[in-house]
Amino acid sequence: MTIHQLSIFIENRSGTLIKVLDALKEANIQIIASTIADTADYGIYRLICSEPMRACDELKRAGVAVALSEVFVIAIDNEPGRAADAVKAFSQADIDITYMYSFLNENRGLLIFRTNDNERAQQIITANNMQIISEEALQSLV
């Protein structure tokens, strides 16, 4: 059970990030969490937000290179070592975490990540009784 993340291609020059944020503001979309993977020439701005489908359409209309990616969100206890425990389960099953970011919400940690094998990742999540966050649950945060 994955959720939709927006992946946005952003060139490394002034004015490109604000163009994206302005378009989201204009459409009354709220950002829940975000991160930028930066390279020498460009960045990939990944974000989860309210109404991802509509946000994607609005950004496309604004001329932004945007796509929807499927990522997992799991909740972990707010104490040291819990992220390590979670990632170890995937690692032991030889599932690659392509990228990951996190935020803290109501005294629990939320890990957002993409894997190279969503089907098996889902099995690991179920087998380990990990607390997965659905799109609806995530939307209730805003």
Partner: peptide, 18 residues
């Protein structure tokens, strides 16, 4: 320029764009 319709979810990592 990448075409908007070709910028799909697979391009969410620098490795894919490279």
């Amino acid at each position: 320029e990448i075409r908007q319709e070709y910028f799909t979810g697979v391009f969410d990592t620098p490795a894919a764009i490279d």
